[in-house]
Design a protein around this nucleic acid. Structure first.
Lengths: 263, 263
DNA sequence: CGTCAAATTTGACGTATCGTCATTTTAGTT
DNA sequence: AACTAAAATGACGATACGTCAAATTTGACG
């Protein structure tokens, strides 16, 4: 429904003002942006209900109170719509990441926290995860407006900034050291690749093999621990109970996990 | 063209017998299988030329000497065709893996060899890589014949068997040890996730940011080394020059790399 | 309040693609 | 040569993308 998100985050919804007087005073740009958000929400619903392949411009037209022409006024093509969903998706992820500011722990635990959050997000919104993926496909990029591509890029920078932060912390407090010839960027990339690969494969395994959530519960933790141990990020997993961190995170995100269970 | 492959591997091509007499003696099943291979080759061409999104049943019909009905006799839907391309793609990968039997090195080097090969494959056939991905999508799986899905599963097992082999070697020669609560399967999964994630992100980065091949040349090696160091697989990267292994692999696959350069 | 021009919205339509199926053609047998 | 079972054909219906001329709304001005 896309509703869970707003509730959990107390998302500011640009509250619709019921007085037409108020409406009239609203600037045109605002109205357009509001309607675009409305359309993206509808598209989000369609995608969660009918899957990525079930997303159709005609369906969006029928599910919205607007006509085809108006829809195409917002999204120049289906690909543009997918990109719009991608930015929406990235926004959700960023909002989740922002919650992590309240999470306590050492710097390595913070990296785990980022991964935990990302996994949670992937499981809550597997189809949006797909949207983000395909939005970075040449075929899609070519057909989305340059402005929207710029927005995606900006959002992606925000996301990586979140990751960078944890690594900078590690460098700052000395628990992580750079060996010669390896930049921090390389470490962040390795971390991201591990998280991405693990989540992508797990989502897949779930679809193909029916691997249960319980079985895959600690797969990501394991993989990331291997990686961070390999980076010599102190304290090593042999010296610290990161399983405990994982459980702390489950508590921290109890609301979201509850949503996940309910399916 | 898909031709590079047959040349390099001296792929048995079920050579077409020019004598009609010979043709007549051929069993029906053989003829069907042959035509299917022919069609997949054409589809492969279309995909490499026009990209994944450019693959169309009508295009395949026009590019082949057969009619729509016949095509649909082979592939019950477009999704089925994608799955067929996926099995084709996996076969290519397996063929490449088989070459590795001639590669010398310790067991950890063999893991690197598997990753090197997989990366090479991803770079040579990025769109086929996409095919394999989307073939594992629920939307596609639902619409492909059970038999073909079974074939995919079998091929995937073959691929993972290749990976398993290197890990079993490590366990056998004592350079890799299992800690409690972690099965070999978990290690293989971690390895695969790292390779998959790194390659997927690199392909993407290439498309989006224009990251050059040179820049990403050693990214995978770095990531895998972190991982295997984290697994305590001896000898550690601090004690052994795996860069050298990587270079040996470049030499070993010189033919393929040359093809890659030529683009 | 009425008029008019610019901006916006509308939905019917053109084109492309998927997948079907009645008809035709081929292959094999007697 | 006649006949039947299997295979191939391509016209056709359905669905989806994207366009554009016409209709509607907006808001500026007298």
């Amino acid at each position: 429904m896309g509703q869970w998100f707003k509730q959990l985050l107390k998302f500011n919804p640009h509250r619709e003002c019921p007085l037409s007087l108020c409406m009239n005073s609203k600037h045109k740009q605002e109205k357009v942006a509001e309607r675009e958000a409305e359309l993206i929400d509808i598209a989000h619903d369609i995608v969660t209900k009918d899957g990525f392949a079930g997303l159709t411009m005609d369906k969006l037209v029928n599910a919205s109170p607007y006509s085809k022409g108006t829809i195409y006024n917002h999204f120049s093509s289906k690909e543009d719509l997918i990109s719009a969903l991608s930015t929406h998706s990235l926004s959700l992820l960023i909002e989740m990441f922002k919650k992590l500011e309240d999470f306590d722990g050492n710097s390595r635990e913070h990296v785990l926290a980022v991964h935990f959050t990302y996994q949670l997000y992937c499981q809550l919104e597997p189809t949006l995860f797909l949207c983000v993926l395909s939005a970075r496909t040449p075929a899609v990029m070519e057909k989305t407006s340059p402005e929207r591509n710029a927005i995606i890029k900006k959002k992606e920078l925000e996301v990586t900034a979140m990751c960078d932060h944890a690594f900078q912390q590690g460098l700052a407090d000395g628990s992580l050291k750079l060996s010669t010839g390896v930049a921090m960027h390389d470490l962040v990339f390795a971390s991201w690749a591990t998280g991405f690969g693990t989540n992508a494969l797990l989502i897949n395994a779930k679809a193909v093999e029916g691997v249960s959530r319980l079985e895959q519960k600690y797969a990501l933790l394991r993989n990331v621990n291997f990686l961070l141990d390999g980076m010599q990020w102190q304290p090593l997993s042999s010296e610290f109970d990161y399983h405990d961190t994982w459980k702390k995170l489950e508590l921290f995100f109890a609301d979201y996990l509850k949503l996940l269970e309910e399916r």
